[in-house]
Design a binder for these strands. Structure first.
Lengths: 187, 187
DNA sequence: CCTTAAATGGACATCGTGTCCGCTTATTCG
DNA sequence: CGAATAAGCGGACACGATGTCCATTTAAGG
């Protein structure tokens, strides 16, 4: 395992810092490899060396923020972490994701660039989490429901709701209501 | 109001027919104006004369199919049309949309090309419908919930579920479970 | 220092977009 | 019926983004 060369490390940092600014400054879906290269003062080839496309750069930036939430889900205090009933944990997850989208919606949006939402980034992790909650709640055929329940967290959807003038609280309220579907009730 | 010239009408038909085949033949998100022009035996300028982009062509093709469902919602027999309780109507709507996505998923996918899902096509219609059901069910703050409930119908989501091996029935099952959120229950 | 391989960055080829305008063809009117 | 007129057509063009390639630069180690 060779060390990363000093100039390489420096450039990696420059790129990520510059990319964060670029994503914040303009429509994240319109950001181009050139934009980031220019902003970072780096050639395009250098970018491609590490990241295959713009979405990957956004993922790299987002990872850091998502990791915190992921730890909370796995081992944090209830209701986010283990210990609370599934419905409450799902609601807490929704709330936390809404906060994350509110804070880093630009990056999340950039993540969707190639339409690879399901392969790239943390989608698999969120899905596994929801799936385990559904199983714990003894929901029949939980596989399809997991994707269904994650759909409203698509960055596009969240952004659209906020752009419409819906407050963060209102969006969270809607998601919380959704979370009640995991409560088993008389059928 | 001038009549459409005969050759123009002929070309419109040629274009739509060719476009339908092209969308069916390859990844609808990768279809280009050129592809359609070539397939229709028409110049690109002719395409741009009527349709500003690929998504619009897909919308034109999809409209026809969506119109039937729209009529059903407004004036058809229950539970799709008026008369049934909101939860049942929502479930019926979900089922019908799933069938529509199953039959014309390729077009629906092409509709999302520019990331304009919320402005283009029938999204506004579906939203208005769901909103009215939520109001009828006396759900508080229904605006945010409307978008939330429509999110799982995003063509990308449906396609992903089906591609994973989930049967149409399973997907419908998940959606039906979702529909139960409009049932008022003890809080 | 000097060697060596990693790292860089810009040139290149390719593709898709959207516009523009000279040519063609349907329609209308004398 | 044949010319005038305007609608319709389609390819050429300029532009912008992508991803690759390789000559040059630069760090790291002896």
């Amino acid at each position: 395992m060779k060390e990363e060369r000093a100039d390489a490390a420096r450039n990696r940092a420059k790129v990520l810092a510059a990319a964060a600014e670029v994503f914040a400054a303009k429509d994240p879906r319109a950001v181009t490899m050139d934009d980031i290269a220019k902003a970072a003062g780096v050639g395009r080839g250098t970018l491609y060396r590490r990241y295959p496309d713009v979405a990957s750069i956004a993922v790299a930036l987002l990872d850091e923020h998502e990791a915190a939430l992921q730890r909370g889900l796995l081992a944090g205090p209830p209701p986010l972490g283990p210990g609370a009933p599934p419905a409450e944990r799902l609601a807490a997850f929704y709330t936390a994701m809404a906060d994350l989208l509110e804070a880093h919606g630009d990056l999340a949006l950039a993540t969707e660039i190639g339409g690879r939402r399901f392969e790239i980034g943390a989608y698999g992790f969120w899905r596994a989490h929801v799936l385990s909650l559904l199983r714990e709640a003894r929901i029949p055929a939980p596989e399809a429901l997991a994707d269904t329940l994650l759909a409203p967290l698509a960055p596009e959807v969240f952004k659209h709701q906020r752009a419409q003038g819906l407050s963060l609280a209102k969006v969270k309220g809607a998601l919380s209501r959704l979370a009640t579907v995991v409560e088993n009730r008389p059928g």
